[in-house]
Each structure stands twice: as C-alpha cells, then as structure tokens.
Design a binder for these strands. Structure first.
Length: 230
DNA sequence: CCGAAAATAT
DNA sequence: GATATTTTCG
C-alpha cells in the first residue's frame, strides 16, 4: 500500500524540502493571513500556501523552527527587566521579521545576537524588505504585513523604550559622588542610553510607517469590496 | 491535528 | 560540530 498521495518522491525516497527565501515568504504571508504566528496552524498554513510539494509535516516543522527562531531573536533583544516590558517576545520578533528593520542595521543587529552566530535562513530573510518597502505600493508586501496592522504592538514598543530610558536614567543619577570605576560604568550606561534612544527612534518610525500602511491597506480593501473586479 | 522533542541528513 | 529537515511521540 504505497500511498504517495502528496509528496513528490525521488525514487521512493522523500524529497528533502528546501525552504527557499520565496517559499518562506509564502509561508509568512499565510501565517499573517491567519492572524499571526501563534494562531497559525500547519494545516491551514499549508492550505493557504497551495504548494503541491509541501506536506503538512513540512509546514509544521518549519513553523516550529520559525517560532523557535522568533523566541531566540527576541530574547537577545529584550533584557527582561522587572515587569516594565510589555510586548511579548514572540510579537516583538515578529515585528522585526515582518517589518524588517534589517538585522544589520543596528537595532537588532550583530550586537544584539549573543555570540555572532546567525541563523542563516531566518536572518537573511529579513534583509530583503526594509522600511523603505513599506511606503512602496507593493501589494504582496502589504499582504505580508496585514496580520500585524492595527495591533496593540505599536504602543507597547514605545512604552518599552520609554520605561527603560527612565530606568537607566535613575541608575545614572542616583549617586552623587563616585569613583573612577563608577564613572566608566556611567559612561557605559550613557552609551546604552544612546543606543536605546536610537532604537526608540527607529521603532517610532516603524510605527509611523505601519500606520500609513494601514491606511493604504484600508483603502485597498475598500476599493476591492466596492468595485468587484473583472 | 498540534506542538515538542528525538532522530537524521546535509 | 552545527543546522536544517524529518520522524516520532504524547
């Protein structure tokens, strides 16, 4: 009973699925269609992707790996301070992945990954679409971002930055006199503050871009409903 | 069916 | 040895 219903086999052996950049994009589009990484499930994703060669297992596996990846990236980014951090690890990374502040741009760049090790697949995927692309009238790109628009994430990102800024500022200004070691510490903290300010700024830009994009999407959707094409 | 973990393959 | 993908298991 050899039932080779779905998968294409190479002389009886299962073909190893290579998750190309494009395949991953399709995957992301599907996931976002389903309302984000935590809601999306293998079967539905597979249906949306409409790729004859993909089995449910393939997708499930990729989904697992993708979630793991998101968790990894976000933990390096969020230094888990007491309660001050709102936005969920997964969401944060999802924003990175989809809005894609390119990993090399500093915010989530090499410095933020603990030991320079990179996940080839997922890191590289971020490079393609930068913030620039957001303002562009690119329907497929817009499609990718749909799942994250109008979310609560915008606010939480900003507040996260704000909170941390306050925290650091307190640390720096609390002691009136200090020795040389403390001075260098302060210098480092100032450095951190600058970095965080920078991140904050970039995140604000992302938020703005996403808002604009949301408007565009809205219009696109409205037009599509009002004027049935063909 | 799903997700996590173990097993393989590259 | 590390990753990517597959298979097994609960």
């Amino acid at each position: 009973m050899m039932k080779n219903t779905n998968e294409h086999e190479k002389n009886g052996k299962k073909e190893r699925v290579a998750w190309s950049e494009e395949l991953h994009r399709k995957f992301i589009v599907a996931v976002n269609h389903l309302g984000g990484i935590d809601k999306a499930a293998p079967k539905k994703i597979m249906a949306l992707m409409k790729d004859e060669k993909l089995t449910k297992e393939n997708v499930a596996s990729h989904l697992q790996k993708y979630r793991l990846h998101l968790k990894k990236v976000s933990t390096t980014f969020v230094p888990n301070q007491e309660g001050s951090i709102q936005f969920h690890a997964i969401n944060a990374a999802a924003v990175v992945q989809n809005v894609s502040i390119a990993p090399s741009d500093g915010v989530f760049g090499p410095n933020s990954t603990s030991n320079g090790k990179r996940d080839i697949n997922f890191c590289e995927w971020g490079h393609g679409n930068r913030i620039m692309a957001l303002t562009e009238e690119n329907s497929s790109l817009m499609e990718e971002h749909r799942g994250y628009l109008g979310n609560e994430q915008h606010k939480s990102q900003s507040t996260f930055m704000a909170n941390n800024l306050g925290l650091i500022r307190d640390l720096v200004t609390s002691s009136s006199s200090c020795n040389s070691q403390e001075l260098t510490e302060i210098a480092e903290l100032r450095h951190e503050m600058a970095a965080i300010r920078h991140e904050n700024h970039q995140l604000r830009e992302v938020v703005e871009a996403m808002k604009a994009q949301q408007d565009m999407l809205m219009q696109a959707i409205l037009q599509r409903t009002i004027v049935p094409r063909r």
